[in-house]
Every structure is written in C-alpha cells, then in structure tokens.
Amino acid sequence: MTNKSFFVKNKIGEVIREKEQGGFPFKPSNTFYRELGIHKRRFGQYLRNEKQPDLEELARIANCFGVNSKDLF
C-alpha cells in the first residue's frame, strides 16, 4: 500500500486570491460575515478545506464575489 498525498483545490480561496490580484483586498469585517450569513469560523473552515459549504452557502459566497456558483465546485 502506498501513501499518496493529494491536494484538493480550494475554489473559494482561488476566487479570493484572484480578486486580490485585481485590486480587491480581502479584509472581511464582522459586517461582511453578517451580510453573508455565514459565521467567520465556518467561513474559515471552508477556506482551509476542513468543511464544504452547502449549495445555499455556495450561492451566497458566489454572489458576494460576483462569480457563478458553478465556478466554486
């Protein structure tokens, strides 16, 4: 049995990095999380690939960053 390590892409993180390169610094405030409707701890878990958002949360995140929710899969 071989020990294979693999990397799962984090699409949410990729979208954020792309926006930052385009001049949109990602410095979320409590207002950001409140308006997004996702607790900041949970959002952090998504960024670290510890948990996966449900479809409704994906739609809200996509809307917030101006991307198609399919781009986050």
Rank of each mutant, 00 (worst) to 15 (best):
G44K: 06
R48M: 08
E20G: 07
R17L: 13
R42K: 15
K27I: 13
A59V: 07
N3A: 12
F73M: 08
S29T: 15
P25E: 03
K4L: 09
K4D: 08
I61T: 06
G44L: 03
Q45R: 13
F24Q: 05
Q52T: 12
N68Y: 04
M1H: 11
Q45E: 15
K4V: 12
K4I: 11
N68D: 15
E57D: 13
E56Q: 10
T31M: 10
K4P: 05
F32R: 02
I61C: 10
L72I: 07
T2K: 13
Q21S: 12
K51I: 06
Y46V: 04
E50H: 08
D54W: 02
G22M: 12
N68L: 04
K9N: 12
K40G: 00
A62Q: 04
G37M: 06
K11P: 07
G37L: 06
G66H: 04
A59T: 12
I38F: 02
F26M: 02
F65D: 02
Y46L: 03
K19A: 14
Q21L: 14
H39T: 07
F32L: 00
E14V: 07
F26R: 00
E20R: 08
R34S: 15
R48E: 11
L55A: 13
R34G: 05
E20I: 08
E18H: 11
C64A: 12
F43Q: 04
T2R: 13
A59S: 13
H39S: 11
E57I: 02
L72H: 03
G66I: 00
I61A: 09
Q52H: 06
K70Y: 05
L36E: 07
F6C: 06
K9E: 15
F32T: 03
F65C: 06
G23Q: 01
E56G: 08
N68G: 02
L55E: 12
S69D: 03
K51V: 07
A59N: 10
Q21N: 13
V67C: 07
R17K: 15
T2N: 14
N68W: 04
R41N: 14
E20V: 13
S69E: 10
Y33V: 12
I38L: 07
K70A: 11
I16S: 02
K11M: 10
R48N: 15
G37F: 05
D54I: 03
G22L: 14
E35W: 01
M1N: 12
L72Q: 03
Y46C: 01
G22C: 08
L47E: 02
Y33M: 08
F7Y: 14
E18C: 04
V67L: 06
K9A: 14
K70E: 14
F7E: 14
N49D: 08
L47Q: 00
R42C: 08
Q45P: 02
G66Y: 03
F24R: 03
V8H: 09
F32A: 01
V15R: 08
K9V: 05
L55W: 09
K4Y: 09
E35M: 09
K51D: 11
F32I: 00
L55H: 08
I12E: 03
P25F: 01
D54P: 01
F43E: 01
G37A: 08
T31L: 09
V15G: 06
K27A: 12
A59R: 14
K19M: 10
K40R: 15
K40N: 08
G22D: 12
R41P: 01
S29W: 05
L58I: 09
F6P: 00
P25L: 00
Y46S: 04
I38E: 02
G66V: 01
S5D: 11
D71A: 09
T2S: 13
L72W: 05
